[in-house]
Amino acid sequence: MSNIKLSFILNRKPYTVETDPGKRMLDVLREDLGLMGTKEGCGVGECGACTVILNGKAVTSCLVLAGQMQDAEILTIEGMRDDEIGRVIQECFVEGDAVQCGFCTPGFIMSAYALLMENPTPTRDEIRHAIAGNLCRCTGYIPITNAIEKAAKTLAK
């Protein structure tokens, strides 16, 4: 079908793109906007690698249609550097060796961000629950859980 004009807020800046509304949000981010930080893993919502924040909620961008970006507020990994919570989470991931191959990392950081936005003082169980939709095949989940716990403590200081 022909392209339509989509307007949305991405990483706190207004964007308008003309694209095929039948594309996935993941493809708009990567192909139309060149934001390659959001990764495609499974493509069916089962790995969490493409997690972004859509209207305040963590979602897998492979399961959102481009048309559904209309008027939305979206945060991706690229927006994390300009955000205190995002920056601290990233620093804790690096310092805590919560990154190995790095493919799953943007998705984990976005899930951690969604958690800490809603719950600044999560328990370890709440952290595990929040990242249960993200798969990692390298580090295991303990360094990732530790990094999010440390980020929450750092931000609380």
């Binding site: 969490g48 997690t51 859509l54 963590a58 399961l63 249960a132 939709g133 993200n134």
Partner: peptide, 9 residues
């Protein structure tokens, strides 16, 4: 249902 990301949508 699914994961948090799926349940959110």
């Amino acid at each position: 249902v699914g994961s948090l990301q799926t349940r959110n949508r």
